[in-house]
Design a protein around this nucleic acid. Structure first.
Length: 705
DNA sequence: AAAAAAG
């Protein structure tokens, strides 16, 4: 691939676009005529906008003053174009400097800890010193571990000890485990004083678990409630994006041994009553298809592999049943902190979460955490989030205040485990979100380390749930290591791209991409405040393209891994709130992000992995709503053409005839078929049922385990 | 080949 050369060409092209050639330095978007429109007579592209109308529109855009959008938080677009644009550029630089500085001090997570609430113990140990009542001697042992810095072998030793103590006998059913948890709980009473700070005040919004094993729900807190759930009148905060009428059309396929009967509503018998009040506050009325199944599956103690697009209620699919079980059964029995540990060493208190959710990007982790906060409201369960790029001390402080449900990205979690600030020994629920990404080459070693190489209970002592929009067969096989007798759930079409996304493929050479993009953006009606998400392959291209769009008066921002976390968050926030209606993104934004109102996804560069394509276009057309996807295709993308055509067929999309031609040309390029995934089919079906050819040795093909 | 995830 002539990528470097390519980039140069694009630079030159941008210089020739008239963006820098006017003496005033004024971008001349209005006069720009796309080269491919001048040189080429016909293209497969939409010809609805002629050159003149394009010019007219962008001219108006410059003048009418109504476009007072901002790039990130810079507002501009007033009367004097020239002055404004200069100011803007300066502002942008200043702003970058400011944000870089910001990155060095506290994150939001740190800020929402009021200094007054910065109380000492969170109840992991009680102050009367009655901790000694813990029957067995692991207390001492764990203490020693701590003093020795918790070396690996010690951790493993104490884990096995924890397991036999805390979870009682291995053969016992889950209820037995919970019961033993409850009866032991009073022994150290760790959760009974959690709702109270050291001044005796209520720590608002959090409940507790009483000594005699009942759930104490905290008082309502209207300020927090507004913060979490929004005002009822504010349409922005309403939960939108779920098209309920379409729900029943979505097919669901469940396979595995003894699949539990699905539920049809949010009701008390399976779900905890307090969770229902929170679900109600969030204005969820009906379970989505994935929730209908995941609720009874998790409640009955089963593992789950779920294939469902995000926005189909995936997050609720694991949060609801997990929180419900935690509410019902209370905190674990094992003493999270041994007696006599507090003197002089209080700062190194460890968090012992009961649930762990792993996500592949920081933004996704943060999004899951925000949901967890909603549904854990007023309960004894404290959600926490940790991820890189943000101030670790704020995260540590939050962990110290108690952490029962931890959402994390792998790197930072490993860091915290190494620092001895998080223990996984009491994990009952493990969730891998975007599991196929978590188990692919880049992540698998870290995941294996967290799940198998630290102190996490083994597969039989925890419940493991995996969610993703795509589940390639080889990933399913890999995932067996982390699951036991799981139920496989497939929601939506087998190809997983639903028909409510209109997918257009256009043939565009690399050097024409920018001008075609401008045409598309210009021809979008400005009245609809829909968001446009543009995917590129490289971080560099993300920067270049967003700068290019800004030069052409489009409200654009960008998100990619080379931007600071502050910048990433700000870009996403600005996009979410429609202050910036265009976002250029790398793969970082491809998965899981739930951004309502993305009406158009543009694959400026197509990914080399068809699964990434599926995830990317899944940012639009969420939960039964319609969306549009446009992809720029050229010969460089012929590697995915076969899978792309299969996908389009499955989703009943129009297939341009030239695409079929490319497919024939590209047929069997004598290399290995795509990632060795057998024929590319069976992507989202239970491999145990639809096994297929190259089953690797050991396990038989179907149905066992 | 690139991106993501720890500094």
């Amino acid at each position: 691939m002539s990528n470097g050369k390519n980039g140069q060409r694009l630079d030159e092209q941008s210089a020739n676009l008239g963006t820098r050639d006017t003496p005033s330095g004024r971008p001349s978007a209005g006069r720009y005529v796309p080269p491919h429109m001048r040189n080429r007579s016909t293209e497969t592209k939409d010809t609805s906008s002629s050159n003149t109308s394009t010019d007219q529109r962008s001219g108006d855009r410059n003048r009418d003053g109504g476009n007072s959008w901002a790039s990130d938080d810079n507002s501009w677009g007033k009367e004097d174009d020239r002055q404004d644009r200069r100011d803007y550029r300066r502002d942008d630089r200043r702003d970058d400097a400011r944000s870089n500085r910001n990155d060095t001090y506290s994150s939001e997570a740190a800020e929402d800890v009021s200094p007054l609430q910065n109380r000492r113990p969170n109840g992991w140990h009680n102050r009367n010193g009655s901790t000694s009542a813990i029957g067995w001697d692991s207390g001492k042992r764990t203490t020693r571990n701590e003093q020795w810095g918790g070396s690996r072998s010690d951790l493993i030793f104490s884990t096995s000890h924890n397991r036999s103590g805390g979870w009682s006998d291995r053969a016992s059913s889950q209820t037995d485990r919970w019961n033993s948890a409850r009866s032991r709980n009073s022994a150290y009473g760790s959760y009974s004083n959690r709702g109270i700070d050291e001044f005796g005040r209520k720590d608002e919004g959090y409940g507790s678990w009483s000594v005699d094993g009942t759930h104490i729900i905290a008082a309502k807190n209207s300020r927090l409630e507004r913060d979490l759930f929004g005002c009822p009148d504010d349409p922005d905060r309403q939960h939108t994006g779920i098209n309920f009428e379409k729900y029943d059309d979505i097919p669901v396929e469940a396979s595995g041994n003894n699949v539990p009967q699905c539920v049809e509503a949010f009701t008390n018998p399976p779900l905890d009553a307090h969770l229902l009040t929170n679900i109600d506050l969030a204005r969820y009325t009906t379970p989505t298809p994935v929730q209908k199944y995941s609720i009874p599956i998790v409640a009955s103690g089963r593992d789950l592999m779920a294939c469902a697009q995000t926005g189909s209620g995936k997050t609720g699919g694991f949060l609801f049943p997990i929180l419900s079980e935690l509410f019902k059964h209370g905190p674990p029995s094992t003493p999270p902190e041994p007696a006599g540990y507090s003197r002089g060493m209080a700062r190194t208190r460890k968090a012992y979460p009961s649930g762990l959710i792993l996500a592949p990007t920081r933004e996704l982790a943060s999004q899951i955490y925000e949901e967890a906060r909603k549904f854990a409201y007023r309960s004894w369960v404290r959600p926490c989030v940790v991820y890189g790029g943000a101030d670790i001390y704020g995260q540590l402080r939050n962990l110290e205040r108690g952490c029962d449900l931890l959402t994390a990205t792998p790197g930072r979690l490993v860091d915290l485990i190494e620092r001895g600030r998080v223990s996984l020994s009491l994990i009952r629920y493990l969730v891998l979100d975007e599991a196929d990404r978590m188990l692919d080459m880049g992540f698998e070693p870290q995941i294996r380390r967290i799940v198998e190489g630290e102190d996490m209970p083994d597969v039989h002592q925890r419940q493991t749930l995996m969610f993703s929009a795509t589940f390639p067969r080889d990933i399913q096989i890999l995932a067996r290591d982390f699951l036991k007798d799981y139920v496989f759930l497939s929601v939506g079409r087998v190809g997983s791209t639903s028909e409510n996304i209109t997918q257009k493929i256009e043939y565009v050479e690399d050097e024409d991409k920018r001008s075609v993009l401008l045409d598309i953006l210009h021809s979008q009606p400005e009245t609809e405040r829909g968001l446009t998400l543009i995917f590129v392959e490289t971080k560099r291209m993300a920067d270049m393209l967003s700068a290019f769009l800004i030069q052409h008066n489009f409200p654009a921002t960008s998100i990619h891994g080379d931007r600071s976390q502050k910048e990433r968050e700000r870009a996403l926030d600005s996009f979410r709130s429609a202050r910036t209606t265009i976002m250029v993104a790398t793969a970082v934004a491809a998965r899981g992000l739930d951004i309502p109102n993305v009406t158009h996804v543009i694959n400026f560069d197509l990914p080399t992995d068809i699964d990434d394509y599926v995830h990317r276009i899944g940012r639009t057309g969420r939960a039964g709503n319609v969306g549009l996807s446009t992809a720029f295709f050229n010969r460089g993308n012929k590697g995915i053409v076969k899978y792309l055509i299969d996908l389009l067929k499955e989703a009943n999309q129009e297939i341009p005839s030239w695409l079929e031609t490319v497919a024939r040309e590209a047929a069997v390029p004598a290399g290995r078929p795509y990632k060795g995934r057998g024929g590319g089919r069976g992507q989202n079906r239970d491999y145990r049922k639809f096994g297929g050819s190259s089953e690797r040795g050991g396990q038989g093909s179907a149905g066992n385990e």
